[in-house]
Amino acid sequence: MKINNSIGCTVDECRFHAKKESFCSLDHINVVKHEKSARNQEATDCGSFKLEG
């Protein structure tokens, strides 16, 4: 698995997590908002997440 040192990640339940290091293995991620207007961190998520398994 390749590691993208430009995308940090601590969500090791994701299939794209680099496992041995706190990085993502994707070339890019899609950040999405789940409110009409994102005004804080809690209003956004990584839309590229896929459950490991």
Rank of each mutant, 00 (worst) to 15 (best):
M1P: 05
S37K: 10
N5C: 00
I3W: 01
E52G: 05
C24T: 05
K19I: 15
S37H: 09
H34Q: 00
L26E: 09
C14T: 09
L51M: 10
I29W: 08
S25E: 13
D45G: 01
Q41K: 15
H34S: 12
N40H: 07
E52F: 04
A43I: 00
S25V: 01
N30G: 01
K19N: 15
S22Q: 08
L26N: 13
T10G: 05
E13R: 10
S22G: 10
S37C: 10
H28Y: 05
H17Q: 11
R15K: 14
S22A: 01
R15T: 08
A43S: 11
C14F: 01
G8Q: 07
V32E: 14
K2D: 14
N40C: 14
E21V: 11
K2G: 14
C14E: 00
R39Y: 02
F16D: 05
G47V: 06
N30F: 06
F16Q: 02
K36F: 06
A38V: 04
G47W: 03
Q41I: 07
D45M: 09
N30T: 12
T10A: 06
E21C: 09
A38Q: 07
D12N: 15
K50P: 00
H28I: 01
E52R: 13
E52L: 12
F16R: 10
K50E: 10
T44D: 01
K19P: 04
F23L: 11
I29F: 15
V31T: 14
E35F: 13
I29S: 12
S37M: 07
A38Y: 10
S6H: 00
N40A: 13
A43T: 04
E42W: 02
M1I: 13
V31E: 07
N40S: 12
E52K: 14
D45W: 08
L26C: 11
H34R: 08
D45H: 02
E21G: 00
C24A: 02
S22H: 01
D12E: 15
G8Y: 12
L51F: 02
C9S: 06
I3G: 04
V31F: 10
S37P: 04
T10P: 02
G8P: 11
K19V: 08
G47R: 01
Q41D: 04
